[in-house]
Design a protein around this nucleic acid. Sequence first.
DNA 1: ACTTCAGTACGAGAACAATCGTACTTTATT
DNA 2: AATAAAGTACGATTGTTCTCGTACTGAAGT
Lengths: 139, 139
Amino acid sequence: MTSPPATTSGGRELAHPAREEIRLEQVLHALADPLRLGVVRALASAPEDLPCGVFALPVSKSTCTHHFRVLRESGVIRQVYRGTAKMNALRRADLDHLFPGLLDGVLSAAQEQAGREREDGPPRRTARDRREPRTDPAG
Amino acid sequence: MTSPPATTSGGRELAHPAREEIRLEQVLHALADPLRLGVVRALASAPEDLPCGVFALPVSKSTCTHHFRVLRESGVIRQVYRGTAKMNALRRADLDHLFPGLLDGVLSAAQEQAGREREDGPPRRTARDRREPRTDPAG
DNA sequence: ACTTCAGTACGAGAACAATCGTACTTTATT
DNA sequence: AATAAAGTACGATTGTTCTCGTACTGAAGT
């Protein structure tokens, strides 16, 4: 048997859909959340894998786990353990192969919109964009 | 006042978001439903406006209304009354202006996937793709 | 005037999704 | 061994979306 790598991710594997199993509807759904879209944008402009932590998302750790799982299970990102962290990378090649132009289209659309919003001031939230955390307002 | 057209849509107006109000996340969400994506594909390849009826969607009339409303309110389609029918058209110009490449990316992705599925056989449904209608099977 | 056609409004139920907190696991550091 | 770091699993909660049926409206045809 081949010896497992000494210091990295003993035997923790994560389930990913194979390339052919990726479905457009699920990809679109994954990208339709502003939080997740933000993550994808960051990954797209990063040179290499990023750990979950660097995003400083305004949600709890478990919610964070949830969103990254949605991205992974829809086939948008690939996740691997590396030491105590979990590294994330866009599945660019797979997505470009399956849906040429889609990812670029979405990314540049997101950039367009972000640019527009920086000028016009932030848009009113659409009630589902981001929910208020459940903190007690009496604090 | 200008005289209203004699035989068409007396005074029924429908609320549409202005071009600048269209939000990427909502567009993606609207397109993430297989039923709605199908409608959008049909509209994209149609020469002109189509009435809601021609789609023969496997849902009730009220559900149909719901889906078309989602498409309209997200800015993906424009709807106008015309006689007893309601005509639907893709807001191609608006979308292309706001998000160049996005719609084409999604449409060709949808076509890619449809082609793939015609070969490989239909994919297993993802449990949210389509729910069973509540009709009594004893009919 | 009546009927048919096409779609809406409303209310309700079920499924889904986003969020949280607490307890736990795994890896690395001290 | 004990602690810290990064994340997961689970259950609960709340809000959103999909779905339906029934009753209704407005336009067109008879």
